[in-house]
Design a protein around this nucleic acid. Structure first.
Lengths: 336, 336
DNA sequence: CTGTTAGCGCATTCAG
DNA sequence: CTGAATGCGCTAACAG
C-alpha cells in the first residue's frame, strides 16, 4: 500500500495539516518542521493521492478529448498540440474515440463529466449538435475543432478557408495557370467549409478574369477520385485544364494516382495541388504542393483557450480563432 | 452545481445508502423506494461523482498510456486498439506523449500513479529500462509495446519478427526471385528486433540455397535511403538484385522514390517490399507489398492482458504474446 | 429491506 | 506557526 499523508505526519511527528502545508506551500511552516516533513516524504516515497485531492479541491486537472478516430492523421496531429500545451498548464488528457457515433459521443461526455473533467475538446470530422447542446446544459466548457464543418455557436479554432483557397489559387495563377479547376467535396455543402473554400477560389479567379470551374467529388477515396477523373478525362486530354486544385490532400493523391494510371504525367501534363499539408503530401512523388493547415497549432490554441477560461473561471468566449495557413510549394505544380 | 447523492436522497425521501444501493444495484431495495430514487435521479439529472467513488472503492477505472509520439502513425494505430478494448472493460485512458524523453516518461509515471491509474501501457520506439524498473517498484502493472526493441523482462505484445521476414522472403523466392537483398536498420542492433528479422531472412535464403546479402541503412528517412541507393546503385544497374526487402515501409517508400528519380522502375526493373503495413504502403504507387503488423490487435491484446490481470488482482505474467502477421501482396513485387 | 455511521486521503477552516 | 476538527461525495459495514 502506498503511504498517505497520515504516515508522513506520524513519521515527521507533526499533524497532517502541517504536512499538507509543506506540500502545497500554502501557509508558513517552521524550518524545522518542514525539514522533518520533507525527510519523511523522501523516506516514505510519499506522493499525494490526486483523487483525494480532487475531491476536496474540486479540481481534477484533467480535460477530456473526444475524437472521431485517433488513427486519423489529422486527429492525431491536432491531438499533439492539445496534449503538449495541456501539459504545460498541468492538465492531463482523458481520451476517447467515437468513430463517428453520435450516441457514443454523448456517452463519453457523461462519462467525462462524472470523472470531473474541467473541460472538453472535440476533434471531429462530423458535426454533433446535440452533444454541444448537452455540454452547454451540464455547463462543461468546450472547444470544437472541426476540419469540415463551419461552427458558429461554440468556441472553435479554425483557419480562414476562403482566404486559404484564395491564396493558393492566386499562386497557381502567378505560376501562369489560367485553366484551373477546383475539385470540391459535395457533401452537406451548405454547412461545411467547402462553401468558403469555393468562394476563395472563385474570387481569385474572378479578380484575374478567369473562368471558375468546380468539379464535384462524392468522397475522398480512390473510388471517388476515379469517378472524377472519368468525368473530366477528355477535358484533361484536350488541355482544358492546366491545374486541378483539390479540396483535400488525400483526394489529390488519389487523383494523381488515377492520372498516372492513364499515362498523364503530373506536373508535366497537368498540375495538381492539395489542401491539408498531411505527412503524405510530402512523401508522395511528385511531392504535393498544398495548403498547410497548422494542425498542431489548432490543437494548441484550442486547449489554451479552453484552459485560460477554466483557470480564470470565466465563461468561454464562443468565437472562432483563425490561424494562418501556409502555401507549401513542391513539385506537383509546374510553372507555365 | 451538480447534484449529489444527498440531493437525490432528500428528494426521494430515503437515506443516501438506499440511493447508493439502487445506483450500484448492490443490495435489494424495495420497488417503491427504487422507483422514487430513480425518479429523483431523473429529475435532478444526477450523475455519480466518479472521483468520490474512486476514493472509496480504490478503483479509478483509468489506465495510463505513455507514448513516444501520438502523431506517429504506428502509435496512433496501436492506440486505437488500446482505447477501444479498454473501453469495453469500462476503462478510460489517460494519455501522454513523451517525445522520447526518458526523464519525462518517468514524470508521467509518477503523475499517473498519483492519479491512481490501475495500469500503464507503454507504446514507444525507444527503450526505457529505468521506467520499467520504477513501475515495478511502485507496483503498477504495465505492458510494453515496442516495435523495435526486444523486451524480455516485462509483459509485452509483439509479432514473431523472425517468422515474419522468413515468410516474406519465402514469398519473394516463390515469385521467382533469387537475388534478394535485405535492407536493415543499423542501430542498437544487438538489442532490437532487427537481429531476428535478419535471421528470418537468412534462414529462408539458406534453405533455398540462395546467398543472403544485408544492406545497412543508417536511418529511415530520405537521406538514409539516398545513401543506401548510392551504395548499391551499380549493383542494381547490373541486375545483381531482383528484389529489395526493406525493414520498414517508410524506408521502402523512400527507396522507391530514389529509384524512380534515377529512372529505375519498380517493379519492372527491381521489386521492392516493406514491413509494417502502414497506411502509406497502400496509397503509394506502385502500392507496396509488405508484411502487415497487426497494430490494432497489438494494442487490443496488450490492454486485455493488462486489464485481465488487474481485474483478477493477480500479477501480470511477464511474457511476450506473439501475434500473427500477414503478407500483403500488392504491386511493388513482380513475378519473375 | 433500510438508516446510521465510519472512513477513503486530503485541504481548510478555526482556535490556539 | 500548529493541531483538531470538518467535510468533499461516496461505499460499505453494521445494526436494526
Amino acid at each position: 500500500m502506498a503511504s498517505t499523508i497520515k504516515d508522513v505526519a506520524k513519521m515527521a511527528d507533526v499533524s497532517i495539516s502541517t504536512v499538507s502545508r509543506v506540500i502545497n506551500d500554502s501557509k508558513p511552516v517552521s524550518p524545522e518542521a518542514r525539514r522533518r516533513v520533507l525527510h519523511a516524504i523522501e523516506v516514505l516515497d510519499y506522493k499525494p493521492n490526486e483523487v483525494a485531492r480532487s475531491l476536496v479541491t474540486k479540481k481534477s486537472n484533467i480535460i477530456g478529448v473526444i475524437v472521431n478516430d485517433i488513427g486519423n492523421g489529422y486527429v492525431s496531429q491536432v491531438l499533439r498540440g492539445v496534449e503538449e500545451i495541456g501539459r504545460m498548464f498541468n492538465y492531463d488528457i482523458l481520451l476517447s474515440s467515437s468513430y463517428g457515433d453520435l450516441e457514443v459521443e454523448m456517452k463519453f461526455a457523461n462519462l467525462f463529466s462524472q470523472k470531473q473533467v474541467e473541460g472538453i475538446i472535440l476533434i471531429s470530422d462530423i458535426l454533433n449538435e446535440r452533444l454541444m447542446y448537452k455540454l452547454d446544459q451540464i455547463k462543461i466548457p468546450y472547444v470544437v475543432i472541426n476540419r469540415f464543418y463551419t461552427i458558429d455557436q461554440a468556441a472553435t479554432v479554425s483557419i480562414n478557408n476562403k482566404n486559404a483557397t484564395y491564396k493558393m489559387t492566386q499562386y497557381l495563377i502567378d505560376e501562369g495557370h489560367e485553366k484551373i479547376g477546383y475539385v470540391a467535396l459535395r457533401k452537406d455543402m451548405d454547412r461545411t467549409n467547402e462553401t468558403y473554400k469555393i468562394k476563395g477560389y472563385r474570387e481569385a479567379m474572378q479578380q484575374n478574369d478567369l473562368k471558375a470551374k468546380i468539379i464535384y467529388a462524392e468522397g475522398l477515396d480512390q473510388e471517388a477520385a476515379e469517378d472524377v477523373i472519368e468525368d473530366i478525362i477528355e477535358d484533361i486530354e484536350d488541355k482544358r485544364y492546366t491545374a486541378l486544385f483539390c479540396t483535400q490532400d488525400i483526394l489529390a493523391i488519389h487523383l494523381m494516382n488515377e492520372l498516372s494510371d492513364r499515362g498523364i504525367r503530373v506536373p508535366d501534363d497537368i498540375s495538381i495541388c492539395g489542401f491539408g499539408g498531411t505527412e503524405l503530401s510530402e512523401i508522395i512523388r511528385p511531392s504535393l504542393t498544398t495548403v498547410k493547415e497548422p494542425f498542431y497549432d489548432i490543437g494548441a490554441v484550442a486547449v489554451r483557450k479552453l484552459l485560460k477560461s477554466v483557470e480564470a473561471k470565466q465563461e468561454l468566449k464562443r468565437d472562432t480563432v483563425f490561424l494562418p495557413v501556409e502555401i507549401i510549394k513542391r513539385n506537383s505544380v509546374k510553372t507555365i
